[in-house]
């Protein structure tokens, strides 16, 4: 390991929820939404977390944002913990990471005009006021592809794609270093998705942002990510550079996920073959076993993320050697 501390480090993060007990005679059950997750985000990178509903990817995102208190583990920003004693307050944290939400309809308060929403952030943080603040809002709206006079309008006057642009503007208003994108495209039409992807990629380069993208859409993930982590039942089962994960998908779950994507190229006679897996040590067994659905309430078997190639790790059964 060389160089400075990574921008963001998620260390051994767990979020467990108590499941409601059917009666008081039932034992308390824990739902392991996120279980011992380690992830690293480097400056300027896009780290994508993929998986299906309930795999813990959104809970991980909320924990990074400080919107979900972790059961155990730490999130470090440039080596300094963001949770636990001595962690920065809500206001300080807001300048570090911001979030873009999935549903462009629920993510804007219907009663507040766009301009007022954006100005409130600037005045809360004492960044700017008066005409300077209004100039900043106008500049930001232009930057995300809207027009400055949109500030006077209310959310219901915008289309889904425009709302998502407003959501991005809101997230960028405090000039954060990290954007957490929680399924930013899944509520949008295909043609709008392309616009938003292009906008996000352009902003990342121009503003030197780092992204954590939560998504179930593997085509988009492959297109924009630098690194990819695949989550399954609260755990990371495969992780690495986009090329490693997509050209040598190795964990059976990753392979199943990629294989399930309905692919339009398949009809053009040349059915896409699933790329070959990377070699794993002899006798190694993948964890968990995906032929049976794991029970998120029971203690999972001991397992570890084993390095199987440069920048490529998969979860194998057994303790780390």
């Amino acid at each position: 390991m060389t160089g400075p501390a990574p921008l963001l480090e998620i260390r051994d993060l767990s979020v467990h929820f108590a499941r409601p007990r059917p009666t008081i005679f039932h034992p308390a059950e824990m739902l392991r939404a996120v279980d011992h997750v380690d992830l690293t985000l480097h400056e300027g990178e896009c780290l994508s977390i993929v998986g299906e509903s309930g795999c813990g990817k959104s809970t991980t995102a909320l924990a990074v944002m400080g919107l979900q208190e972790p059961t155990a583990g730490t999130v470090l920003y440039r080596g300094k913990p963001l949770n636990g004693p001595g962690a920065p307050g809500r206001k300080e944290r807001a300048r570090i990471a911001q979030m873009v939400f999935q549903d462009p309809f629920a993510s804007l308060n219907p009663r507040i005009s766009i301009g007022r929403m954006l100005l409130a952030q600037l005045s809360l943080h004492g960044i700017a006021s008066g005409s300077e603040a209004r100039d900043r809002v106008a500049e930001m709206l232009t930057r995300v592809g809207l027009s400055p006079d949109h500030a006077r309008r209310f959310p219901h006057e915008f289309s889904g794609g425009q709302r998502q642009r407003i959501g991005i503007a809101r997230a960028l208003m405090l000039d954060p270093r990290i954007l957490v994108l929680d399924e930013p495209l899944s509520a949008l039409d295909v043609s709008i998705q392309a616009q938003i992807i292009n906008l996000l990629m352009e902003l990342q380069e121009r503003l030197k942002l780092s992204y954590i993208m939560i998504s179930h859409d593997l085509s988009v993930v492959e297109h924009v990510s630098d690194r990819v982590a695949v989550m399954y039942f609260g755990r990371v089962v495969e992780e690495g550079g986009w090329k490693q994960v997509f050209t040598t998908p190795t964990h059976p779950y990753t392979r199943r996920l990629i294989d399930s994507v309905p692919d339009m190229d398949a009809v053009l006679a040349q059915r896409r073959e699933l790329p070959p897996p990377a070699p794993v040590p002899d006798g190694a067994r993948f964890s968990p076993d995906i032929s049976a659905r794991p029970d998120p309430r029971t203690m999972p078997e001991p397992s570890h993320l084993a390095t199987i190639g440069p920048d490529h790790r998969v979860r194998l059964a057994g303790k780390a050697p």
């Binding site: 998705q193 492959e222 339009m264």
Partner: peptide, 11 residues
């Protein structure tokens, strides 16, 4: 519409 969608395995 076809061009707007990234294809898996095309990067």
């Amino acid at each position: 519409l076809l061009a707007a969608r990234p294809r898996l395995g095309s990067r």
